[in-house]
Amino acid sequence: MPAAGLKTIIALSFVLAVGFLLVILSCALWKAYYPLLVVATYVLAPVPNWICSHCANPDDFVESSGAAVLDLGRFCTGFLVVMGLALPVILAHSGIIQVPAMIMSVIGGLLIYGTIISFAMFFQEEQEF
């Protein structure tokens, strides 16, 4: 997409940096480093979708085995996205991290995931068939 140029890259990297800042602050301010797991979760979230879209044959409409692999990838991606939201809530409910740390890590995680998704949307190669 030619419209997504330099400004988009700068804005996305700025948002990504703010997201990482929030997550790292939520860890370092209270000396409890469990919210860093949120970053790993959101970085891993698009991976099942990506792998399964390469495994499947999207032109195969008669036997739905290709669509089943795609559905498996979407299911795992949905699992990982909700995992990124649920982990800080679990940690805060059990008193392992504080409630402000939970809020900061949830917001930071959403910013990181939103950056990844919009990066993939803006710089996706056009696939017409």
Binding site: D71, R74, F75, C76, T77, G78, F79, L80, V81, V82, M83, A86, L87, V89, I90, L91, H93, S94, G95, I96
Partner: peptide, 26 residues
């Protein structure tokens, strides 16, 4: 619908994991 199903299953797993972690910690 498929994304929502994955999210709901994840919610179920983490609700149960929450009870286990809470049982151990607090």
């Amino acid at each position: 619908g498929v994304y929502a199903a994955g999210g709901l299953f994840s919610l179920a797993f983490y609700v149960l994991l929450d009870s286990a972690v809470w049982s151990k910690q607090a």
